[in-house]
Simulated assay, not measured.
Amino acid sequence: MLMKPFLEGKDLKRWRAEPRGLWLIYIPQRRVNIDDYPAIRDWLLPFKDKLEARATKQEWFELQQAQEAYSPFFQPPKIAYGHFQDQPIYSMETTGAYSNNKTYFIPNGDWDLLEVLNSKAIWFDFCSRTTAVRGGWREATAQHIEPLPMPPITDTAKTELSRLAEGASKAAQERLTLQTALKHRQSQKASREEIAALRGIIRQDREIGLFVSSGGFTPQAMAEARNGTVHIQLMDLDSFLENWMAYYDKLAEEDRALLRLRPVYFLSPN
């Protein structure tokens, strides 16, 4: 697969990542006939002159330094974290995402290790080894992470720590889904990037997306929702109100209270 999900350091949070629909076109040297992938070829063609002007010898569409030796380590599961931290921001990366030089990962990381890394005890030790820079951020370089003390963990504790970490990650993901999918806006239309961000957190094998925007959607956003492999239903204010009225009588009373409807009667002229 040539398209790899891509994360930047600012996408990594505690217990979860917040992907923004970024992708890496990963084409190592002498591995691909670009004409077999016309959509990717056509996307890259406007940049062909600049790509051909790069140093070293490679085809215009190939990566200059693909670093293939490290590619297997990007496979999930792995623990990912960002370079700058103002709190523990370790999460389990399960999509096989690639990343930039402001992110790091621990290959084959276990859930119990994730729980320990996000703990207050480890954060206290980490802070004792680092100096806060502007804004209170601390740099999580290898020289600061590798010496962190890891306590011996019994099998019973390992099971419990793993359960807690998986539960925290699931709750964080569910919260992100709600934050991303449901936004109230009076006039601003939802953009293509926001639709792509929602697609990035949907599990294709068992989920579909619903994006509600009271301000509507840009043409690019509608095309993004229509052309993707994951189904995303767009709902503007008119559609939302139509559905609310259609299913109002079937809603629980506590749900009706969120947006109360009252019938209005008119005398018939006949």
Rank of each mutant, 00 (worst) to 15 (best):
R30A: 13
N227T: 11
R163W: 09
A246W: 04
F84L: 15
Y26T: 11
S191Y: 14
A80D: 11
L7I: 05
W111D: 01
M1L: 11
I208G: 10
G21N: 08
S214F: 10
R138A: 01
A257K: 08
P76H: 10
I27T: 00
Q67D: 04
M222G: 08
K13N: 15
I145R: 01
W60I: 08
H83E: 14
S214M: 07
Y98I: 14
Q143N: 05
W123L: 11
N243I: 14
D236S: 13
D35Q: 09
E52Y: 03
D249P: 02
A172K: 02
W43Q: 04
M222K: 12
L234C: 09
I201L: 01
R31F: 09
Q204H: 11
P46W: 00
Y70K: 07
R260E: 12
Q233W: 07
P28S: 03
P72Y: 09
P269W: 10
D110G: 08
E62H: 00
S99P: 00
L114C: 11
Q186N: 12
L178S: 03
L44S: 03
D249E: 11
R256P: 02
P151T: 00
Y37T: 04
G215N: 00
Q65S: 15
R31C: 12
T95C: 13
I89P: 01
A55W: 15
T229F: 10
E115L: 10
D249S: 14
T56P: 06
D236I: 08
Y81C: 04
A246F: 04
L161F: 08
P107K: 11
S91Y: 15
T141Q: 06
Y248D: 02
K120I: 15
R31Y: 13
E68G: 05
I145V: 14
I27D: 01
T56H: 09
H231M: 13
R31N: 02
K13V: 13
F211A: 09
E62Q: 10
W15T: 00
I27M: 02
L178A: 05
K10T: 09
T94L: 10
T180M: 05
M92P: 03
A165D: 06
R129D: 07
R138V: 02
T156E: 13
W111T: 09
Y248G: 07
L234P: 01
R256V: 06
Q75N: 06
L258V: 02
A66R: 05
I34E: 03
N118D: 02
A121G: 15
N118K: 01
A39M: 15
G228C: 15
A142C: 10
Y248A: 12
R206L: 05
E207A: 07
T229Q: 11
G209W: 03
S239K: 09
E174Q: 11
P149C: 14
W111P: 00
I34Y: 05
Q186H: 11
R134W: 06
I232M: 00
P77E: 06
D236H: 08
G21Q: 08
Q64E: 08
M1Y: 14
D42K: 05
F74S: 01
I145S: 03
A221G: 00
Q67E: 08
T131R: 09
A121C: 14
Q87R: 10
Q143W: 10
P151K: 05
F73W: 06
E8S: 04
I195F: 10
L117H: 02
A223E: 05
D42C: 13
M150W: 12
Q75K: 13
F240Q: 00
